[in-house]
């Protein structure tokens, strides 16, 4: 087997193992929460008898290990159970929400990743001069402001004052793609501002690191222009660290957007999770946790694999 295939297979196996470990942690975490699910469902109307019945019905009397494996096997088959609060099928409502969240994340990624890398390249080309300082100052400012504040400020000026985009990002299936894009314009802008700085600075640092190499001098002595040197000779050698940061930020776009979703009342996964945490709806929380863990592990695994593939020494052994 090609050594790269072996490394990639190792990463994949490790990713799956990690996912199982995460599922254990999620399950254990929801078990040690104080209080009793049956108690919280029944609330005031709880009596000894109804509690015992409900526990029996929910399978809460079985040992935790048995319940974990039952949960795991049904999750593997796509059955995430039903919500305790409204009896809805979790997989179905979660799927709808996940689709919305992924749509928002994808829009933000399509804007922010190329923008961050381009800004990073420009910052390197004009390092320590005004364009570099301006880019650094702007991105650091946007990352330093809390995202809810950014959200409300944008909503006030762009939606309320100028009326260019709606302040509430409600989308549904009947909308056309263009209408959807218009609806998510503001949350996408906020998310872009939040993730830009991290990726831009990593691009800048990784490329500056490479710019010290002797082969950059070779490229300069070939008479290539500044940007050509950076794009053709420095960037290919800085892929691995950049991809790592990009993936971390993509994961954040899926997993960490709760605040932005709440601000813009966007029907995404984050809001769904927050709603059900407050209602102590354990199966929903577990399912969301599993999805978030899968996204995180999956994207980081992609970053690892891209780093392996970007290394010519591994790709083309002697």
């Amino acid at each position: 087997m090609h050594p790269v295939m072996k490394l990639v297979a190792q990463r994949l196996a490790l990713g799956i193992l990690l996912l199982f470990a995460a599922s254990v942690l999620i399950f254990a975490g929801t078990q040690i929460l104080p209080g009793d699910v049956a108690q919280s469902i029944l609330g005031q109307s709880a009596t000894e008898k109804t509690l015992a019945n409900l526990r029996e019905q929910l399978g809460l009397n079985e040992p935790a290990v048995t319940r974990y494996f039952k949960w795991l096997f049904s999750a593997l088959q796509g059955d995430l159970g039903t919500a305790l609060t409204n009896g809805a099928d979790i997989a179905e409502s979660l799927g709808r929400r996940l689709k919305n969240t992924l749509f928002l994340a994808a829009c933000a990624a399509v804007v922010s990743v190329p923008l961050a890398i381009a800004l990073g390249l420009i910052a390197v080309r004009f390092r320590d001069r005004w364009p570099d300082k301006l880019i650094s100052a702007l991105t650091l400012t946007t990352i330093s402001i809390p995202e809810f504040l950014l959200g409300y400020v944008l909503a006030y000026f762009i939606a309320v004052k100028l009326g260019w985009a709606p302040s509430v990002a409600m989308i549904n299936d009947s909308m056309s793609l263009f209408e959807k894009l218009q609806a998510v314009a503001l949350p996408v802008a906020v998310l872009t501002m939040v993730v830009l700085a991290h990726m831009m600075r990593m691009t800048r640092a990784a490329i500056l690191n490479v710019m010290q190499s002797a082969y950059i001098e070779t490229a300069e002595l070939k008479g290539l222009s500044g940007l050509e040197v950076i794009r053709r000779h420095a960037l290919p050698n800085a892929i691995a660290p950049i991809v790592n940061v990009v993936m971390l930020n993509l994961a954040y776009l899926v997993v960490g957007v709760v605040v932005v979703e709440v601000v813009f009342v966007y029907p995404g996964l984050g809001q769904y999770l927050v709603d059900h945490v407050s209602k102590r709806d354990v199966p929903v929380v577990q399912a969301c946790g599993l999805i978030f863990a899968a996204v995180y592990i999956g994207l980081n695994m992609v970053a690892d694999i891209v780093s392996i593939l970007a290394n010519p020494r591994l790709r083309h052994p002697k």
Binding site: A214, T218, K222, G223, S225, P236, P312
Partner: peptide, 24 residues
């Protein structure tokens, strides 16, 4: 100058191992 470098005058460095781009 860019037209001169790499066409009229070229350069061979001490360490070719470091002067070749490992990714190309």
């Amino acid at each position: 100058l860019r037209k001169l470098r790499g066409s009229e005058v070229t350069y061979v460095s001490q360490s070719a191992a470091a002067s070749f781009n490992p990714a190309k």
